[in-house]
Computed example of a mutant assay.
Amino acid sequence: MSLAEFVLALGATCRLTRFITKDTLAAGFRIWIAAHFGDDSKLSYLVNCTWCSSIWIAFAVASLGYCLDGSLWLQLPETALSLSYLAGISSRWLD
């Protein structure tokens, strides 16, 4: 994995983790998990914990990176997710 691929994978992992654990658009998913498995369930904890979710998301992103090995089908989504994450961080500094 090249440095560029690693940085894109890192950005994608950060954005996907933030989306699942904090984003309002994924709140329905987190509520659904809590309703079906309980607020105190391990799965509910997983979808609300950044540290817990990120390891599984990183595993999936790294696996895709290995399987698709620099494919444009992976680079485009990773780039978009990385840019989205950086834009979110930048908006905190600029606003």
Rank of each mutant, 00 (worst) to 15 (best):
S2G: 13
L3H: 06
A4D: 12
A4Y: 08
A9G: 13
L10N: 03
T13A: 11
T13D: 11
L16H: 02
T17Q: 05
R18N: 08
T21M: 06
K22Q: 13
K22P: 00
T24G: 08
L25N: 14
F29T: 09
R30E: 09
R30Y: 05
I33A: 13
A34Q: 13
A34Y: 03
G38K: 11
G38P: 01
D39N: 15
S41F: 10
S41R: 13
L43Y: 12
Y45I: 08
L46E: 10
L46I: 08
N48C: 09
W51F: 04
S53Y: 01
S53M: 15
I55S: 12
I55H: 10
I55F: 06
I57T: 04
A58Q: 07
A58L: 14
A60N: 07
V61D: 05
A62S: 11
A62M: 09
S63G: 10
L64D: 02
Y66I: 07
Y66F: 07
L68C: 03
L68T: 02
D69G: 01
G70R: 03
Q75M: 08
P77L: 08
A80F: 07
S84Q: 04
Y85H: 11
Y85K: 02
L86C: 09
A87D: 04
I89W: 01
S90T: 00
S91T: 04
R92T: 00
L94G: 00
D95C: 06
